[in-house]
Design a protein around this nucleic acid. Structure first.
Length: 793
DNA sequence: GAACTAATAT
DNA sequence: CATATTAGTT
C-alpha cells in the first residue's frame, strides 16, 4: 500500500469514535500504588482494552519478557520505588520497542518535557480520567506503524480542553509526486477498503485526529472584527487570519469559514434582490449605501408606525419604558421593556438650553441608542445574563444584548410622559419644532454633531430611569448622586425619595468639577464586566461650558476595552463632540503588530488601532434611541430650547496616554448587520420578527428599519396640532458639490445622486432627509428607487 | 509557487 | 450541516 493510501485510510479510521479493534490492544499498566493501578486498569477495561496490571517495574519487565509480542502499550507511573518511569520507559523502549505512556501527579512542565523528550509518547497528569486514556490505542497503533507521534499531536489528544484550535503544524503533509498521480485510484482504494477496514485495522491507524475548528461566537466575532477592519472586499483568508491572530487557526480554516460567510451574504442579498418587500428593498438599498427614500412606502410606513407605537413593543408605563441592558461588546444598552431589543448603547448627552426658563438650567440628558432591528432576544449572542438588580418596582433589568447596536431606528421616547413615543426615519410622534438630524453613519464626520434638535422643548434625562416623578423633578445633581462609577454602585437607590431612581447598571457619573453637579451619565458595563471607567470632567465656569471625557467600558470578553468620550461644547446651542473610543489592549486579544501603534511612551504598550466592534457604539449605526424627558421636564422647557445633541461617537481610538488616533470606520453597516444576522443563523435564532407583514413567508426577511440609521431625519413638532406627517420629507444634500451636481442634474433636492457612487447611489455623507410639515405627503420617486434597485449589485 | 476560492469531500 | 480538503485559477 502506498503512502497516500495509508494516509487516506488513516483519515478514514481515525475518527473520534473508538475503533472496534481496541479489544485487541494489550496494555500493561504499571503503578506501585494499588489504587491507581486498579482505577486505571478498570478505566482501560471500560474502553475494552486488554489490560494487565503489575505493581512494580521489575514485574513489568518480567511480564513483557514472558509474554513477548503480546503487549502493544505500556502505561506506567512515574514515581516508583525500584525504578522510576523514565528508567522503565528506557528499558521498555530498548528491549521491546513499545510505546510508553507516563502517568504522574507531577504537572511540572519540566517533568513533562523530560518525559516526552525521553521518548514517552503521552504524559497524563494524575488523576487520570477516563477521557485521558480513551484513545491511547492511537499511540499503540502509531508505534506499530513506526510513526513517531509528535508533541503537537499529543497535545491535541483526548482530554484537551475543547474549543482550542490545534496548531496546524502537526499536519503531516509531504505529498510525493507518486501520491499525486494516484489521487483517483486512491479514492477508489479508500472506498473499497473501507468495508473491511475493521478487520484490517491497526496498520492504518495512526495518530490522534486533528480536531475540527469550531467557529464559536467568539471566534466568529473575531472573524467579523477582522473583516470589518480589513473591509469585506479586501478580506481574504490570509489577512483575516493575520488579524484574528488565533493560535493554531489556519488559513484554510479561515478560508472555509469565509466561504460559508460569503455564501450567506450572497443568499441574503439575493433575497433582497428578489423580494418586492420593502424591507428587502431597504436592505438592498443599504447595500448600496442606501437611499433614505427607499425606506418606506405608505402602507409600510403606517405599519411601521403602529409597530413602533405598539405598547407591546415600546413599553408604556413609566416603569417599563426602558430598561438598561448590557450590551455585549462593551456596550450598555437600553431596551424597551417589552422587547428585548438588541444592541443599544447609552451615551452621554448634554442638553443645554439657551432660552429655557431659568429654573431648568442644568444639564440633564442622557441619551441612549437602541437597536430595533432585532427584537425579542433572538439575537443574543455572546450574552451576558441579566446581572443587575432592580429596585422599587422599577424593573430595571440588565439584559443581554449583542453587539448590534449598529442596527436600529431612531426612537425618541417620551419617558416621563408615559407615552413611549418613538420615531424612526419617518416616524415621529414626538415632534416639536425640533428637527432631528441623523446623519449617515458611514462617513459621518466624527467631530460633528449628529443629532440636532432645534427649538426642542425637551430636556433629556437619564434614559433608563423612566421613573422620574414628573411632578417632582429635581436637578439631577441630587438624583443621580452616586449613580455609580463602578460596579459597586449598581442597583443603588437614589436617596431622594421623590425620584426613585435605581441605577441598575454601572454608569459613569459625570460630574461638574466644581459643584459636584451631575452633567451626565454614561452607561457602561454591568457588574463584573467593568474594567475601567474614567471620566475626565471639566466644567469651566459652570454651564454652559461642559466638557467631558469619556468612559472606558470594560469588556469581559477581554477583547478590548472601549470607551466613549464626548465633549460637550460650551455654546448654548450646540454641543460639539470630540468623542472617541478608547481602546486599550487587553491580553486576551492579541492584535497583530500591524495594527498597533506605539505612542512613544515607553511605559505604554502598543495599543491597537482599530475600530470598535460591530455595533457597540450607537453612532456607528446612527440609530439613537433617546429618552426624552417629558412631563415636568418637558414642561419646564416649554419648547424653546435649542439643543444640539451630539450622539456621535467617533471611532477614534485613543491610547492610554490620551493620544488619539482617528480611525475611519472600515466596512459599512450592512456588513455588520449581515454579520450579525449570519451569527443569528449560526445560532439558530429565530429570525427577527419583521415589522412588516411578511409578503412571501420568507422567514429571513429583514426588518426594514436598519437602513434608516444611515440618514438624517428631521422631525416635526409633535406638540403642534398638526400631526407630523412622515411623508413630508424630502432628501436634501448637504454638501456643496453634491448640491451643485444635483442642480445640474435637475433632480433638485428630491434626489441627490452622487456621481462618485456611480450615479445611482447616494453619497450618504452629504445629505439629509428633511421633514417638512408644510408639505403634503410626498412619496419617494418610484422610478428613481427602481432605478437604484435595478442598477445596484 | 503562494494564495484565493469554487467545488467537493467528510 | 459545518468544516476540511481538493483542485483549478490568479
Amino acid at each position: 500500500m502506498d503512502a497516500a493510501t495509508e494516509r487516506s485510510e488513516f483519515r478514514q479510521s481515525s475518527a473520534n469514535t473508538k475503533p472496534s479493534f481496541v479489544d485487541m490492544i494489550n496494555i500493561l499498566v504499571v503503578d506501585d500504588d494499588a489504587t491507581t493501578l486498579a482505577i486505571v486498569s478498570a478505566m482501560l477495561k471500560t474502553w475494552s482494552y486488554q489490560v494487565v496490571s503489575v505493581r512494580n517495574p521489575i514485574d513489568a519487565l518480567a511480564t513483557l519478557r514472558a509474554r513477548k509480542g503480546i503487549f502493544d502499550l505500556v502505561v506506567t507511573d512515574l514515581h516508583m520505588p525500584q525504578m522510576n518511569g523514565f528508567e522503565l520507559q528506557k528499558h521498555v523502549h530498548e528491549e521491546f520497542k513499545l510505546p510508553v505512556i507516563m502517568m504522574s501527579a507531577d504537572d511540572k512542565e519540566s517533568v513533562i518535557l523530560k518525559s516526552l523528550e525521553g521518548g514517552v509518547v503521552y504524559y497524563i497528569v494524575k488523576p487520570v480520567s477516563k477521557d485521558d486514556i480513551k484513545n491511547v490505542w492511537q499511540y499503540a497503533v502509531a508505534a506499530k506503524k513506526g510513526k513517531s507521534v509528535t508533541i503537537e499531536e499529543i497535545e491535541s489528544a483526548p482530554g484537551e480542553a475543547p474549543g482550542e484550535v490545534e496548531d496546524g503544524s502537526s499536519e503531516t503533509s509531504s505529498d510525493t509526486d507518486e501520491e499525486k498521480q494516484d489521487k483517483k485510484a486512491e479514492t477508489k482504494v479508500k472506498r473499497a477498503r473501507k468495508r473491511h477496514r475493521e478487520d484490517d485495522n491497526e496498520e492504518r491507524m495512526v495518530a490522534p485526529k486533528k480536531p475540527k475548528v469550531v467557529w464559536t461566537n467568539s471566534l466568529h466575532n473575531q472573524f467579523l472584527l477582522a473583516i470589518r477592519h480589513i473591509g469585506l472586499d479586501k478580506a481574504v483568508p490570509k489577512r483575516i487570519l493575520e488579524f484574528m491572530n488565533v493560535p493554531g487557526l489556519t488559513r484554510e480554516n479561515v478560508a472555509s469559514h469565509l466561504q460559508k460567510y460569503r455564501i450567506f451574504l450572497k443568499r441574503v442579498a439575493e433575497k433582497a434582490r428578489l423580494s418586492k418587500c420593502l424591507s428587502d428593498r431597504v436592505f438592498r438599498s443599504s447595500f448600496a449605501f442606501g437611499h433614505p427614500a427607499l425606506v418606506f412606502n405608505n402602507v409600510q410606513r403606517d405599519q411601521y408606525y403602529s409597530q413602533l407605537l405598539n405598547p407591546q413593543q415600546m413599553g408604556t408605563s413609566i416603569a417599563s419604558t426602558f430598561q438598561p441592558s448590557a450590551g455585549n461588546g462593551s456596550t450598555l444598552a437600553l431596551t424597551a421593556a417589552a422587547s428585548n431589543n438588541l444592541g443599544s448603547i447609552q451615551f452621554p448627552n448634554y442638553h443645554q438650553s439657551s432660552s429655557s426658563n431659568g429654573s431648568r438650567s442644568f444639564p440633564q440628558l442622557i441619551g441612549s441608542s437602541q437597536s430595533r432591528l432585532f427584537n425579542n432576544n433572538q439575537a443574543n449572542i455572546l450574552c451576558q445574563q441579566p446581572m443587575l438588580g432592580n429596585g422599587n418596582g422599577d424593573q430595571l433589568l440588565c439584559q443581554a444584548n449583542r453587539r448590534t447596536a449598529a442596527f436600529g431606528v431612531q426612537q425618541l421616547m417620551n419617558t416621563f410622559g408615559n407615552v413611549g413615543m418613538s420615531f424612526g426615519l419617518m416616524n415621529n410622534n414626538i415632534g416639536t419644532n425640533s428637527l432631528m438630524h441623523v446623519y449617515p453613519q458611514q462617513s459621518q464626520p466624527r467631530q460633528n454633531g449628529v443629532f440636532t434638535f432645534t427649538n426642542n422643548p425637551f430636556s433629556y434625562n437619564f434614559a433608563t430611569s423612566g421613573n422620574q416623578n414628573s411632578s417632582s423633578y429635581t436637578p439631577l445633581s441630587s438624583s443621580f448622586e452616586n449613580m455609580g462609577s463602578n460596579v459597586n454602585n449598581v442597583n443603588q437607590r437614589v436617596p431622594n425619595s421623590s425620584h426613585q431612581l435605581v441605577s441598575n447598571f454601572a454608569v459613569s457619573q459625570i460630574m461638574s468639577s466644581s459643584g459636584r453637579e451631575l452633567v451626565g451619565l454614561m452607561g457602561s458595563q454591568p457588574a463584573g464586566m467593568l474594567n475601567n471607567i474614567t471620566n475626565d470632567i471639566d466644567i469651566g465656569g459652570g454651564y454652559p461650558n461642559v466638557s467631558l471625557t469619556g468612559a472606558s467600558i470594560g469588556n469581559n470578553n477581554g477583547i478590548f476595552n472601549s470607551g466613549y468620550m464626548a465633549q460637550l461644547g460650551a455654546s448654548s446651542s450646540s454641543m460639539s463632540s470630540s468623542a472617541g473610543f478608547e481602546i486599550s489592549a487587553s491580553s486576551a486579544y492579541q492584535f497583530p503588530p500591524s495594527l498597533l501603534k506605539n505612542n512613544g511612551d515607553d511605559q505604554q504598550q502598543n495599543v491597537p488601532v482599530l475600530p470598535p466592534p460591530a455595533g457597540n457604539i450607537n453612532d456607528q449605526c446612527g440609530l439613537t434611541n433617546m429618552n426624552v424627558g417629558g412631563g415636568n421636564v418637558e414642561n419646564s422647557h416649554s419648547g424653546v430650547m435649542d439643543n444640539t445633541i451630539t450622539t456621535d461617537a467617533p471611532p477614534t481610538l485613543i491610547n492610554n496616554n490620551n493620544i488619539s488616533h482617528e480611525q475611519e470606520l472600515v466596512g459599512d453597516i450592512d456588513d455588520l448587520m449581515l454579520s450579525n444576522l449570519f451569527m443569528d443563523q449560526q445560532n439558530n435564532y429565530e429570525p427577527s420578527p419583521p415589522p412588516f407583514e411578511q409578503q412571501d413567508g420568507d422567514q429571513d426577511q429583514l426588518p426594514p428599519d436598519f437602513a434608516s440609521f444611515l440618514y438624517q431625519v428631521e422631525v416635526p413638532d409633535p406638540t403642534a396640532d398638526q400631526v407630523p406627517n412622515p411623508d413630508s420629507y424630502h432628501v436634501e444634500d448637504n454638501a456643496a458639490n453634491d448640491r451643485s451636481w444635483n442642480q445640474q442634474q435637475e433632480g433638485g433636492d428630491q434626489q441627490v445622486v452622487n456621481p462618485e457612487f456611480g450615479g445611482n447611489v447616494f453619497d450618504s455623507e452629504d445629505y439629509s432627509i428633511l421633514f417638512d410639515p408644510e408639505h403634503p405627503f410626498q412619496d419617494c420617486d418610484d422610478d428613481f428607487l427602481n432605478a437604484i434597485l435595478d442598477a445596484d449589485m
